[in-house]
Amino acid sequence: MKLLKTITLLFIFSTGIYAQTTICPDVEGAEQHPLLSSYKNSCIVGYNVTKFDMVTLPISKITYEGAEKELTVEGKVTDILYGIESSQSTTILEVQRNYEQALKSSGLEIIYSAFGKKGVMNNNSAISREYESIASTEYLGSFKFLKDKDYRLAFNYLGRNKDNELAYFVAQGKRNGIDYTLMLYINYGRGNSELIEDKIFIQAKIIESESMETGQVSILSIDEKIKNEGKEIFHNILFDFGSDKLTENSYDVIKTLSDYLKANPNQEYYIVGHTDNVGSLSANQTLSEKRAKAVSNALTTKYGINESQISAHGVGQLSPLTINTTEEGRALNRRVEIVLK
């Protein structure tokens, strides 16, 4: 009987250790960003969002004085700390190149990329010393969602890393009226904690800011999009929640749209409403139609556009621009478009 109790206690103890050291599933409260997805055998172990901040990123080799070239951006900042569970068969370079290729495919440009300790920094310098929001123990430990406090040490033992166990790159681009700057810092975990040792960690930092053009729609910008893409997307034609009532700020954009339509009186267009996937398919279809009609009515009754030039339609949630699993994605999918007939 005593032997059975001993075996039972050993089993509970060993499974408890496993539960604490496993990386997956994602930490509660985390969300995937529309630009990124988890690497194979990885999960999110840390997550934090800051509504607005200024971030400086190195875009050349790190020295004791920092980098010779830097990039400073401001906007909403999302930090995601990924851990790769089974990293023995995965290399840092493989992770770096896969993420770079995925971001290039989504329209972003890699503006700086470095591989290996010797490529990222000079001997014994540290990125977190000059750029505290990158890989520092204090910064990672301040995350709102952190699966275990030891994950703040994911980049803490750089001196033990081999040269090929470090990578860093920065990408930039514009998608759907948002300017994105994205940094990935990739490291092979070396340390005294079972949570860290022999695992790959990735700190992703995404800064997103509204494009200067977004709030300053012009006839020329609409004309350029129509000529090149056959449509223009408006994220700043907004409605009250769950309603087809236009917000007051939307009328400035609709006025500019009416000026464009008056400048092209012989061309016909569709006004198309889109929603996210919150709610039923039929309800979203109806709401998108009502919102398109609200814009069309404003154009005809308030700004004198001929009814024969435009027709309103809704497609509900059936044509998303990006994923609907995050608030950022849902916000991008709620939109109005003008489409060339």
Rank of each mutant, 00 (worst) to 15 (best):
Tyr185Gly: 02
Tyr185Glu: 12
Ile186Gly: 02
Ile186Met: 05
Asn187Pro: 06
Tyr188Gln: 14
Arg190Lys: 15
Arg190Gln: 13
Arg190Ser: 14
Asn192Arg: 12
Ser193Met: 15
Ser193Phe: 15
Glu194Val: 01
Ile196Trp: 04
Glu197Ser: 12
Glu197Trp: 13
Asp198Gln: 15
Asp198Ser: 15
Lys199Tyr: 09
Phe201Thr: 06
Phe201His: 07
Phe201Cys: 02
Ile202Thr: 05
Ile202Cys: 05
Gln203Gly: 10
Ala204Trp: 02
Ala204Arg: 02
Lys205Pro: 00
Lys205Gln: 13
Ile207Arg: 08
Glu208Gly: 10
Ser209Arg: 11
Glu210Gly: 03
Glu210Ile: 10
Ser211Gln: 11
Met212Thr: 14
Met212Gln: 14
Glu213Tyr: 08
Gly215Ile: 06
Gly215Arg: 12
Gly215Asn: 14
Gln216Lys: 15
Gln216Tyr: 13
Val217Ser: 03
Ser218Gln: 12
Ile219Ala: 03
Ile219Met: 09
Leu220Thr: 10
Leu220Asn: 10
Ser221His: 05
Ile222Ser: 07
Asp223Tyr: 02
Asp223Leu: 02
Glu224Gly: 00
Lys225Trp: 11
Ile226Met: 13
Ile226Gln: 02
Lys227Met: 05
Asn228Pro: 02
Asn228Thr: 09
Glu229Pro: 00
Gly230Cys: 02
Gly230Lys: 03
Gly230Pro: 02
Lys231Asn: 10
Lys231Arg: 13
Glu232Gly: 00
Glu232Pro: 00
Glu232Leu: 06
Ile233Ser: 01
Phe234Glu: 04
Asn236Tyr: 06
Asn236Met: 03
Ile237Ala: 00
Leu238His: 00
Leu238Ser: 05
